[in-house]
Write a protein that binds this DNA or RNA. Structure first.
Length: 497
DNA sequence: AATGCCGGGTC
DNA sequence: GACCCGGCATT
């Protein structure tokens, strides 16, 4: 949970305080940025930190908005807060709300401790304003400030998101944190959570590019987005909450049973996620953090074992096929989800995301028919047989065979933890999930096929040989381990074609 | 024959 | 809706 970023230590001033800041630092975007970042840290620590502490790391975006009241450090009087200047500089209208700016700008001398820093700060502060702006946006990252939103989670709890934020989500926050900071470049570290928060609009990201863009999308587009990793569902939402909901409702059958399970089914994408090939965004920049789902074949990532069933970052073993990313391309089959307004297809349709609130863009389509393709979807629609599968296999980074997933024999629920715990990424995954990961590629194909109009309805049976079904995997003897669908002689849900 | 699962039945 | 199973298609 409280994974902290390496960088954080520097700011270590506050136990927790830093985390928030940490987020940013991760991003190495601009050369100059570092210095700035540092500053940022400082500031944050100095002032906001307190807040964080209070919250235990769970900050809410909301808070930020309230920042005035909420954050104000005791010692530091309100005057501190008055830091109008910042806003001014920041071109963006959002500014006012933007928490981030505030901290920076006003960062007052209040903190004695940091004399030196202070000094530096001061100097920089001047520049800072500008810097601040730039930096944030560069990332899109909502900044720590914005961190409020998703970031908060990360920050507060432990920067979860830092790690790539992607997966992390408020709820899961601790869960997924990766150290990516250290190792994994791939996952978009910086991005951080961007706020999943509803207020997404707030962030400064705009800056450079952002403003330029169409006003409308500028904001939204940049910051983080969450992509549904469910096979064949590429839905992208701006808020983690929305995404969770989406996953829960659409993919998990709406059951709350597995509270955090949703987390595994979506990933965070930094603003301009690769997904969106569309050049739309002017911000050429940092691709780096952005894609949570790095194509990276190399498992190097710290979070090797990403549990996420479908997760983009499949455990190392996964073949290049790695699903990473990809799913997105498929239209989400169902998106009744209110929240989800957006869907972004990798194709680029959609960078646009509705800024806040109702994401649903008018134009959106609900492609029910379209994609609904593959059996995988049946999971939802059908009986959710699979959902409850008792089995769980441990996914460790070391997951067994790259290509083939090890049969259940492996373990049932056990501790999956070794690695997991350490990395924080690991998580036990149901068999089906694993399978999904590994076969993601396959799934996609299937999906595509399904998607194609001509094939729409088809329920194709796959050649026997290809598919592994519960019966094959577990054998008749262990029928009890079969997914319910198999037991009932229905289409296997655990190993959908 | 074994497997996968549709279609339909029962509770 | 959960559960089962006949029966067909495929291997």
């Amino acid at each position: 949970m409280a994974t902290k970023r390496p960088g954080d230590t520097s700011s270590s001033s506050g136990p927790q305080s830093c985390p928030s800041t940490a987020v940013r630092p991760t991003d190495t975007r601009q050369p100059g940025a570092e210095t700035q970042e540092t500053l940022v840290y400082m500031q944050c620590c100095g002032q906001e930190a307190p807040n964080l502490t209070e919250r235990n790391g769970h900050r809410k975006i909301m808070d930020r908005n309230h920042q005035g009241p909420v954050f104000v450090p005791q010692g530091r009087t309100e005057r501190v807060w008055t830091h109008p200047p910042a806003p001014q500089q920041t071109t963006t209208p959002t500014i006012p709300s933007c928490p981030v700016s505030a901290p920076y700008s006003f960062w007052s001398p209040g903190s004695v401790e940091m004399d030196e820093i202070m000094a530096a700060m001061v100097l920089t502060s001047l520049s800072c304003s500008s810097v601040v702006q730039s930096s944030p946006q560069s990332q899109n990252d909502p900044l720590p400030g914005p961190s409020s939103g998703g970031g908060d989670m990360g920050c507060g709890g432990g920067d979860i998101e830092c790690g790539g934020g992607e997966l992390s989500d408020s709820s899961s926050s601790g869960y997924w944190s990766w150290d990516h900071g250290n190792v994994s470049p791939a996952p978009s570290p910086s991005v951080a959570e961007m706020d999943s928060s509803p207020d997404e609009g707030l962030h400064m990201e705009l800056e450079q590019g952002g403003e330029l863009h169409t006003a409308a999308r500028s904001k939204s587009s940049f910051r983080g987005t969450y992509r549904c990793l469910w096979p064949s569902c590429g839905k992208v939402l701006t808020s983690s909450v929305g995404m969770k909901r989406h996953v829960r409702v659409l993919h998990l059958g709406g059951s709350e049973q597995s509270p955090r399970e949703e987390d595994f089914y979506y990933t965070k994408i930094s603003c301009e996620a690769p997904a969106d090939p569309s050049p739309v965004s002017p911000l050429p920049p940092d691709p780096s953090p952005v894609s949570p789902l790095p194509p990276d074949p190399s498992p190097v990532s710290p979070l090797p074992p990403d549990p996420s069933p479908v997760s983009p970052l499949p455990p190392a073993p996964l073949p290049a096929s790695s699903p990473h990313v990809p799913w997105a391309s498929f239209g989400s089959p169902l998106s009744p989800d209110p929240d989800s307004g957006l869907q972004i297809s990798s194709s680029g349709s959609g960078s646009s995301r509705p800024s806040s609130g109702p994401e649903s863009a008018p134009g959106q389509h609900r492609p029910l028919s379209q994609s609904a393709p593959s059996s995988s979807w049946q999971i939802q629609t059908d009986h959710l047989y699979q959902a409850c599968t008792p089995l769980q296999v441990t996914m460790t980074s070391c997951s067994p065979a790259p290509c083939c997933w090890t049969p259940p024999t492996v373990s049932n629920q056990h501790s999956h933890h070794n690695t997991q715990v350490v990395t924080g990424r690991c998580r036990s995954v149901s068999v089906g999930e694993q399978w999904l990961q590994q076969n993601s590629a396959t799934n996609r194909l299937t999906t595509l096929r399904a998607a194609s109009p001509s094939l729409t309805h088809c329920s194709f049976r796959k050649g026997r040989g290809e598919a592994k079904k519960c019966r094959k995997v577990y054998g008749v003897e262990r029928k009890d381990q079969w997914c319910t669908a198999c037991r009932w002689k229905k289409a296997c849900q655990r190993f959908p074609d």
